[in-house]
């Protein structure tokens, strides 16, 4: 059990999202950085769908009410356990009474905390994710506040080496790149943008502005004009879609995306790169790299292989731990 001592009012309990209710207008919700969410769960031997706490703003402090294992993954934030510095990806044991402190985030924008078996919140409509707009799911349908207690689904600590475990996550920036690269597919109205707009979109960086949350980010860069005007009829949209309202500055829809929208769509970021958007901070530059469906499918295969490598590696580590720890 872990008690929230201090936490800005933007953190929510999330899992991999709520599928199957799109037809009712209900978005998926779920962890913005599903990769870090999965890493935190896998380090504890949890199911990857177990609920974690998503923290998009620090500083934050937690007190462990009982001895438990826990995992931390995501942004670098000078985390300490009773004053002892922790790696940004870490799973280990906390003793009753110990203080977990997260400092300012230096690179990355979201941190995930996992508890053994997952955070114990009720499943609603097939998921434990917080549906912020509708106010249900997760921890009483709301953001976490000081004084809240998060319980693990399992009382026992996970099998971990005493000094803890860490995991290698892919780098947010590719070597030599000033911008975070996002692979994207051309979307419905792509060809209706001017040639200059299309060229700018695929070659120049777009900065993450301060106007961003779980629903989406507003970006700032070369303005994107269309050849055709006129209102579109409302149509389906999904996380990753890059829309361009009349002002010409793009918006990316994220985990709490609406299910329908009406702005022209220039591109769709592929799902395996969502985590990169989630870890982008205001001021960070994003650059879109055009891919086709075949490349998008290959990127999913690549991501699945990475996850399988984590699962196999951590299973082997747990087996080793059982015999020698």
């Amino acid at each position: 059990m872990i008690e929230v001592l201090a936490l800005p009012p933007v953190s929510t309990v999330q899992d991999l999202g709520r599928d199957g209710h799109w037809f009712q207008g209900l978005g998926r919700a779920g962890a913005m950085d599903a990769l870090a969410h999965r890493a935190a769960n896998l380090l504890l031997g949890n199911d990857e769908t177990a609920a974690t706490l998503e923290i998009p703003l620090t500083p934050a402090q937690f007190r462990f009410a009982a001895r438990t294992s826990f995992a931390l993954a995501g942004a670098a934030c000078d985390a300490t356990l009773d004053g002892r510095a922790l790696p940004r990806i870490w799973a280990g044991i906390a003793e009753a009474g110990q203080l977990l402190a997260l400092g300012g985030m230096r690179t990355g924008a979201r941190i995930y905390i996992a508890l053994p078996g997952g955070i114990d919140v009720p499943g609603v409509l097939g998921s434990r994710s917080t549906q912020l707009r509708e106010g249900f799911g997760g921890f009483h349908g709301r953001v976490l506040m000081p004084g809240d207690l998060l319980k693990p689904m399992q009382a026992d600590a996970a099998e971990l080496p005493e000094a803890g475990l860490s995991l290698e996550l892919p780098a947010l920036w590719q070597p030599g790149e000033q911008a975070i690269l996002l692979r994207a597919l051309a979307s419905t109205e792509h060809d209706s943008f001017t040639e200059a707009a299309r060229a700018a979109f695929w070659t120049t960086p777009y900065a993450v502005t301060r106007q961003g949350n779980r629903q989406g980010f507003r970006l700032e860069g070369a303005p994107l004009d269309r050849n055709s005007a006129g209102e579109l009829r409302s149509h389906g949209i999904v996380p990753g879609i890059v829309q361009v309202p009349g002002g010409g500055q793009p918006i990316i829809q994220l985990a709490d995306s609406a299910t329908m929208g009406g702005y022209p769509k220039i591109a769709a970021v592929i799902a395996p790169d969502f985590w990169r958007i989630a870890q982008a901070r205001p001021g960070d530059q994003l650059r879109f790299v055009r891919v086709d469906v075949v490349e998008a499918a290959a990127a999913e295969v690549e991501e699945a292989a990475l996850l399988e490598q984590w699962r196999v590696g951590l299973r082997a580590q747990r087996a080793l731990c059982r015999s020698w720890c």
């Binding site: 995991l167 984590w310 590696g313 580590q317």
Partner: peptide, 16 residues
């Protein structure tokens, strides 16, 4: 108790 480094096997890092 301070972290000195890691022993890596594949992506898994055991903390030293």
């Amino acid at each position: 108790g301070e972290v000195l480094g890691y022993l890596c096997s594949g992506p898994v890092r055991r903390v030293v």
